[in-house]
């Protein structure tokens, strides 16, 4: 015992006496440090004047996207106005807008109102997508959780996965005819794969410590799956759903090649046959806008489930 006692140096007598008595430090006195201070925003371009100031304001970030869109539309309009591309190949945006409004109340030349085409396509895509989500997500989750199921399903899945959905069209017609069923099946196949893969990956990323937290309190394997595995996978599930929705929407036109009498894909086809680029472009833009709206709706649903506060 020739060494000096390290504790008497590290721990002061007042802490020691605190430790002895009932006057232990209260945990509530230990505060969360929230002293993150942001620098005050700089007053940029405040001293500039005249044209330069105006230009600076113009190039502020919130305007950049709008400016680029306007420039794009002007260029498009110019290309048509100066007949660089002829009217049977491309129509200007102003005509597209006119045709768009006209198509809301007029069935000519392709046989249906624009909104009827849109509803038909939307119904078809959602049918395929929801079917894929309802089957694909649970399948991916179970494959990720139960190794044996994975071993059984995996080889078949890996065989089917690389086949492009469009390659299924002939078989789909042979099996299901040329109705809604065949088209929904194509879209189903396209959206099925991302659902399965992402759900699978998501649940495989479950933190094993969290699974143990549940198990130690007597949770059954299925309870651990529900309470730990499933919530862990939710961000990846939504990732898969987003890709699936994307796949469903992009396969739409291909699916509507299978003898359709309605739908945005059909409308585009009719536009091509009738040499009406205006109809084609209105159809394309409608597909684009609706697709963007669907993605937006899905991310709204996601933020309902996944609080951004826990994902830092």
């Amino acid at each position: 015992m020739s060494k000096t006692d390290p504790t008497s140096e590290v721990v002061g007598p007042e802490i020691l006496s605190q430790r002895m008595g009932r006057g232990s430090p209260s945990p509530s006195s230990i505060e969360l440090s929230t002293s993150a201070q942001l620098a005050p925003p700089k007053d940029r371009g405040g001293s500039k004047s005249g044209l330069l100031y105006f230009f600076h304001q113009f190039l502020r970030r919130e305007y950049l996207s709008i400016i680029s869109l306007i420039v794009f539309l002007l260029a498009w309009e110019g290309v048509c106005y100066f007949k660089i591309i002829g009217p049977y190949q491309l129509v200007p945006p102003t005509t597209v807008l006119k045709v768009f409004i006209l198509k809301l109340t007029q069935v000519n030349p392709d046989g249906a109102y624009l909104w009827a085409h849109a509803l038909s396509s939307l119904g078809l895509a959602l049918l395929g997508f929801l079917g894929a989500a309802l089957i694909g997500v649970p399948l991916g989750l179970f494959m990720g959780w139960y190794t044996r199921l994975n071993l059984v399903v995996r080889p078949i899945f890996d065989l089917i996965r690389p086949i492009p959905p469009i390659a299924w069209i002939p078989l789909a017609i042979l099996w299901l005819g040329i109705g809604v069923k065949a088209k929904a099946y194509i879209i189903f196949l396209a959206s099925f794969v991302p659902c399965v893969i992402n759900s699978f990956t998501g649940i495989r990323l479950t933190n094993p410590i969290l699974a143990r937290v549940a198990r130690v309190h007597g949770a059954s394997d299925f309870t651990v799956f529900l309470k730990i595995g499933l919530p862990s996978a939710i961000p990846m599930i939504f990732n898969g759903l987003r890709l699936s929705l994307n796949a469903a929407w992009t396969t739409l036109v291909a699916a509507e090649l299978v003898a359709a009498s309605q739908g945005l894909g059909f409308m585009i086809q009719m536009g091509r046959r009738l040499a009406r680029p205006d109809i084609v472009i209105v159809g394309m833009l409608t597909i684009g806008v609706l697709g963007a709206l669907l993605s937006w709706g899905l991310s709204k649903a996601e933020s309902h489930f996944v609080s951004s506060r826990r994902l830092t």
Binding site: I209, L210, R212, V213, I228, P231, I234, V306, S307, R310
Partner: peptide
């Protein structure tokens, strides 16, 4: 546990 074991969600 030694590791952080709170449930993030």
């Amino acid at each position: 546990f030694q590791e952080p074991s709170t449930i993030p969600w």
